[in-house]
Amino acid sequence: MKPLVYIAHPRLDRSEISGPLFDVAGQTEGVTCVDLYGEYPTFEIDVAREQRRLVDHDAIVFLHPIYWYSAPAIVREWQDLVLEHGFAYGKHGHALDGKVTLNAVSCGALESSYRPEGGNGAYLRDLLAPFEKTADLCGMRYLAPFAIYGAGRAVEEARRGDHVAAWRGLLTALRDDRLDIPAARAARTLNDIAASHAAAPETA
């Protein structure tokens, strides 16, 4: 599969999780990386170019921090403009059928908060329902989110290294068709599956 990683972070310069993960994706052979805020600083998204990108790839990954139980604004703008009728959905819209998609996110709150009995009152995957339903409508296969919780203290608590290794494993497994897609679709998060693929940097 050809993975396409979209990063959506309006302040990459002070990002502690998304930025480093994006760098790792850029160093991974066969993975295409797009910095949405970098390419479209005025939100003037080039619809034709984005649709070409989607057609050319099989696994679409959105890498972003969780903002208000969703993604930063440019992802929503991207959805509104790129997922056109007749392309992504509708009677003649089948360009995305069968492609795999997922959200790779960093959450400020702890994992304990993302539970029915926790502060946020629901699992992360359930809160990301709009992404899952969008994928369903476009005929794509939605995978469970890959997430790091308590992201603000991940560096201090030395949890970033494992997360980066798991991320690298996830991307290479996707690329090499080693990821168990049915299991990834059924899981609550991708974290354990990704960790089982955890990998050191590839030596090019």
């Binding site: 619809v47 509104d80 403009l81 056109e84 009728h85 509708g90």
Partner: peptide, 14 residues
């Protein structure tokens, strides 16, 4: 002319 245009009338996908 693309962007924020509704689906054509009468094409209900759902």
């Amino acid at each position: 002319e693309r962007g924020w245009t509704p689906p054509p009338k009468g094409d209900a996908s759902l």
